[in-house]
């Protein structure tokens, strides 16, 4: 199987280039994921660099651009990919080396969303109660693994990475706005109420298309907007 992989080492390369790799057919097993293939290619050339850890789509380390679409290598079946498989780092993020990108800004925007529960009431001795219906509203929001596939596929984020929070961070904002235990909804909405933080989303929906966990940041953003409008009337 043929691969074409983006290579860049800032110490030796003046510009990035694409390198061809071949994985021998006898090494390919049924049910193999792209990450399994990458690990074998790394044996051919140990300088091939990418992040990885859990190998089953929960840690969010191995996001990359796979044949033009962002995804996680560990849960992308090899057999579904058209060869040559073209692998690039996430678009729109600074490249550190090969498939490894600098995610500092992505994490910064995540922190900007203040992704922690705010509840100033005295803590009860037991759990705070929450009805199953209220808890259901967190489904589809809390499962985010911060892999970055969504924000790195969003043209609005590419253009304004510092001012637009991006789909991943906005999904977090929605997760806490929706949480019946959180008391800071007004504060959260105020922080988003400018021309960029939230409103640079143009509903392109690439985020929802690529999310490897099947989440829908686009809808979450729409819900925040609606809450915002309701509050102003």
């Amino acid at each position: 199987m043929e691969f074409s992989i983006y290579r860049f080492n800032p110490e030796t390369d003046s510009a990035p280039y694409m390198q061809d790799f071949t994985l021998a057919d006898d090494l390919i097993e049924p049910g193999m994921m792209l990450l399994d293939a990458l690990l074998l290619l790394k044996e051919q050339d140990d300088s091939l660099s990418f992040r990885r850890s859990c190998q089953h789509g929960v840690c969010g380390s191995d996001g990359m651009n796979i044949n033009g679409t962002n995804g996680l290598a560990c849960i992308t079946p090899l057999k579904d990919l058209k060869a040559p498989i073209v692998l690039r780092p996430f678009p729109g993020m600074p490249v550190i080396r090969d498939l490894i990108v600098d995610m500092d800004n992505f994490y910064h925007q995540y922190r900007e969303a203040e992704p922690w529960l705010i509840n100033e009431s005295p803590e009860p001795e037991v759990e705070r109660h929450q009805s199953p219906e209220d808890r259901d509203r967190l489904d589809g929001l809390y499962e985010c693994i911060l892999c970055g596939c969504c924000s790195a596929s969003c043209p609005s984020y590419w253009w304004n990475p510092e001012r637009f929070l991006g789909p991943a961070a906005l999904l977090q904002a929605a997760r806490f706005i929706q949480d019946s235990r959180d008391q800071a909804t007004e504060h959260r909405l105020q922080r988003l109420d400018d021309a960029y933080s939230l409103y640079r989303c143009h509903g392109i929906m690439n985020c929802t298309q690529v999310c490897p966990k099947g989440l829908n940041p686009s809808k979450a953003i729409g819900d925040i907007r609606r809450t915002m409008i309701k509050r102003s009337v």
Partner: peptide, 16 residues
């Protein structure tokens, strides 16, 4: 209970 206060989204029983 501390975890719940930190915001962990535990699944819930009918009584909350």
């Amino acid at each position: 209970y501390e975890l719940e206060h930190f915001g962990v989204p535990f699944s819930r029983l009918d009584d909350g």
